[in-house]
Structure formats: C-alpha cells, structure tokens
Computed example of a mutant assay.
Amino acid sequence: MKNLLSVAAFAGLCLLLVAPVQAEGGNIAAGKAKAGMCAGCHGTDGNGVASNPLWPKLAGQIPAYLDKQLHDFKSGARKDPIMSGMAAALSPVDMNNVAVYFASLKTSPGAAKNEELAKEGGKIFRGGDAKTGVSACMSCHGPSGLGIPPRFPRVSGQNAAYTEKQLLAFKAGTRSNDGDIMTRIAFRMSEQEIKAVAQYMAGLH
C-alpha cells in the first residue's frame, strides 16, 4: 500500500510540475503534406525506419508533446543537428499540423530483443527502485506506456535504442528541455537499468 501511495503521489507531482500546454485543433491533411520531409527518418507511416533504430517512432504520439519538441528543436532548448534544421523551416501552425498528423497514425507494435533485460525493466517501470530513489516509469507514462497528456509521452512500442539514447542524455544532463523530472530520475539509474527499461518499453503495447 505504501508503494502504491508513493506512485500516486509522484504522478500527482508530475502533473503539477508541468505547465498544461495543448496542441489544439490542427489540420491533419496540411500536416501530412509537411511531414513528407520527415519520412526519411521517421518512415512513411511514422513508425521509423529499420535502418536506424536511433530515430524514433512518432505515430500515435501525444500531439502536444510532439508540438513542444518541435518548438524546442527550433529554439535550441533541445539540441539535435538534424532536427534543429528541420524545425527551423516550420511555423508554429506547421508544427501543430505535423503533430496532429503523426498523432493520428497507428503505432506499430514493438518487441523486446532481450527478454531477460525486459523482465528486469518491467520491475522498474511498474515499481521503481526504492533503494536508489528511482520512481516507477508508469507514474508519468501510464501503466500501458501510453503517456499522460500533454507533456508525458507515449513510450510503449518505442525503439529501444532511441529510448536508451534519450535516458542517457537525461542522465548526463545533455537533454534538459522537459524540466528536471527525467534528469533526476535518469541520474539515479545505472546504465544497466536504462537498457532494461528501454527493452521493456519496446515490447509494451
């Protein structure tokens, strides 16, 4: 019961700490037209490309989250040489349209490539680690990994390599555009735990 109360309290804290930014409206058709330039990395269906698992799936992602990330790439709050260049050409309306377009697409199911690691990651995802102060991932991303709008993204089915890369960036402090929640959590995680959680979330759907 104590652990469940801790998870609930942390979930409430997540929602309080993050300002409610919504990607409202948006034109899916216009977003599709703009998203043509995204297909090389994110796939024609938004589910990424097999040649590089470091590029994320965007299909089915929370639109407000995608919208914010595009704004952050454009402003430099989140750094990536490819995405910064792509976002530079987009207006706020374009970003909203692209976000709702990708959100409208169906996410393809993923799979863990290492079942042992995934089993370890599942324990952290659902229960955290009281010894190191790592909170359960599902507190902010939901028990099925579908995310909690507007800021906590869908993580289920995401490429494990991409998830691992982002968690390591949060741990190192090289990514800090989403407040300090993920920075604090990832900092307490070992690289082994990060790999495990990434594997588990890849097969979560």
Rank of each mutant, 00 (worst) to 15 (best):
G127I: 01
N96P: 04
A99T: 05
V100Q: 05
V155H: 08
E115F: 10
G142R: 09
G142K: 09
A161F: 10
F73G: 01
G142N: 09
M95W: 07
I148D: 07
K74W: 03
P109G: 04
M83Y: 00
Y101N: 09
E115Y: 08
G128F: 01
A77Q: 09
N159H: 14
S104V: 06
A88K: 03
G133L: 10
K119A: 11
T163M: 14
G76S: 01
P81A: 09
P109D: 05
S108I: 12
K74T: 04
K119T: 10
N114L: 01
A88E: 02
A111W: 05
C137A: 09
A161P: 05
V155F: 10
F125C: 03
K123G: 03
P150Q: 13
T132Q: 05
V98P: 00
K123E: 14
K131F: 03
I148P: 07
S156V: 14
P149R: 12
P153W: 13
F102P: 04
K165G: 04
V93M: 08
G157P: 07
K165T: 05
E115Q: 15
R78M: 00
A111K: 13
E115A: 13
V98H: 00
M86S: 00
P150H: 14
S135T: 09
E116W: 06
S108V: 13
D129F: 03
D94C: 01
V155W: 10
N96M: 05
G122W: 01
K79C: 00
G85M: 04
F152Y: 13
K123H: 08
P92G: 07
S108T: 14
F73R: 01
A118F: 03
M86F: 08
T163L: 15
V134R: 03
A111Q: 11
R78G: 00
L117A: 11
T107H: 14
G157Y: 08
C137T: 08
P150Y: 12
V93N: 10
A112D: 02
K113G: 12
E116R: 13
S156L: 12
A88M: 03
Q158N: 11
